[in-house]
Amino acid sequence: MSNFLKASIGRKLLVGLSGLFLFSFILVHLTVNLFLLAGQESYNIATHFMTTNPVIQTIEPILAIGFILHIGISVWLTFWNQRARPEKFLKVDQSKSSTWPSRNMFVLGGLIFIFLVIHISNFWYKINFTEIGYIEHGGEMVKDAYTMVATSFSNWWYVVIYVAGAVFLGFHLNHGFQSAFQTIGVSNEIWRKRWTVLGNFLSVLIAAGFSIIALYFLLKTL
């Protein structure tokens, strides 16, 4: 085990595994968000479930650990990798040999991180820790997250930030998804193609899914 953690591959494996875990979270997140399109009541109930269900509450700290691992090790590896080429090439043309996202995971990750901070303070923090309006659904008073979201997305600039975040995330996953399977060794000639196709599909789905919701609310205000 110590060999595992000491080796660059071992650490990279943790990035991949935590990435896949975070990816599963994103899927759940998107699913919940899609309730926004179904209306105020559906979404508020879904949010209420997510903020009160004990299972979800237990997973939340694990999710936080996932983020910390994913980000922490990636940053460490990125700097480690920088050291591997102290003198840079004068002219680099990697456009034929690799995809843009695959070369810019750190940048994308950084942008997503910035977005994450904004996003968490705007939504998650507000829903969990601030007093927002309550509304009655099926005889129970729940936080009216729907209205909060709708209000936020009525700001065009916030929609721009949000859509940009979703697109960055899409690019990040575009490489990250198939890369994670490669890293944990669940890949070969055939499966790599499958993971790539699936990754392309899912990354577009996620970027589009999150964006559409924001745009939907923006359009509604027009």
Binding site: S8, I9, K12, L77, W80, N81, R103, M105, H175, Q182
Partner: peptide, 20 residues
């Protein structure tokens, strides 16, 4: 793997450029 780390090679991020 341990030797490559020690010698100062970077780690793999699966860009696939090597294969190409």
């Amino acid at each position: 793997i341990a030797k490559a780390d020690e010698l100062g090679f970077g780690s793999c991020t699966n860009t696939g450029a090597c294969e190409v």
